[in-house]
Amino acid sequence: MFNTYRTKRSRRAAVGLASAAAALTLALVGCSQSEDSTTPPASSSEHDTQTVVTAQDMWVKATDPDITPGEAMSGVFGTLENHGDENLVITDLKSDAADVVELHEVVDGKMRKIEGDVTVPADGSLLLEPGANHIMLMQITKPLTPGDDVTVTLTFSDGSTLEIVALVKDTSGANESYEDIDGDEAMDHGDMDMSGDADAMDHG
C-alpha cells in the first residue's frame, strides 16, 4: 500500500511539473511575441518615395478627334510646387496618353526639347505654360477630348514620384512648329498656341 501511494503521488508530482513547464513555455512565447510586436520597422524607405511636390491647375490641350494614333502631339500646363527644403530635378516622365513624354521650351516661337536639368526649386514652384516650359505629349495613342483626364507621372532626383491628373481643355491658336534638338528640322504641331496669349486659351 505504501509503495502504491508513493507511486500515485510521484505521478501527480510529475504531472504537476509538466503542467508548470508548459505554462512557463507559453509565458515565454507570449513575452517574445509581445516584444516583437513593439519593435519599430527596420526601414523607413516607404517614406522616401513620398514626394513633397504637388501640382496645381493642370490641363492638357485637346487634339483633333480624327488624329492618327501615334502621330499627334499636345502640351500639359499648370504649376508644380515644391514644399520641401531641397531642389528637385525632374528625371523621368510617363503618361497613359502618349508613348513619349518630354519637357519642352519655346524659343523664337518654336518648341524644342529642354537640354539639361529642369528643377522644381525648394520652397518654390515651376510654372508650365504656353510660350514657355511645358510637358510635351508625343505619339499620342488616342484623341484627347475636352472633359477627359490625362495622367502624367513625374519622377524626381530623390526617387519620389508624383502622379498628375490633368483635365483636357479646348484651345485655339495659330499653327506652331516643333523644332528638333539640333534646330535643323521642323514639323507641324497642329494648332497648339505657344505664344502665351491668354485670349487664345479657353479654360472652360
Rank of each mutant, 00 (worst) to 15 (best):
N3A: 05
R6F: 15
T7N: 14
T7G: 09
K8V: 15
R12S: 14
A13Y: 12
A13T: 14
A13S: 14
A14C: 12
G16H: 08
A18S: 03
A20D: 13
A22Q: 02
S32L: 15
Q33T: 11
E35T: 11
E46V: 07
H47D: 11
H47A: 02
T51G: 01
V52R: 06
T63G: 00
D66R: 03
I67A: 03
P69H: 05
G75W: 04
D85E: 13
L93M: 15
A97K: 03
V101Y: 02
H104A: 05
V107Q: 07
D108T: 08
I114M: 03
E115K: 00
G116V: 09
T119H: 08
A122Y: 12
G124M: 05
L127A: 07
E129A: 06
P130R: 03
N133C: 04
L137Q: 05
G147L: 15
G147E: 13
D149W: 05
V152F: 11
F156L: 09
S157F: 11
S157M: 08
G159C: 05
K169L: 14
G173A: 12
N175R: 07
S177M: 13
I181N: 15
I181M: 10
G183F: 04
E185S: 13
A186L: 13
M187G: 14
G190P: 08
D199L: 01
A200G: 09
M201N: 06
M201L: 12
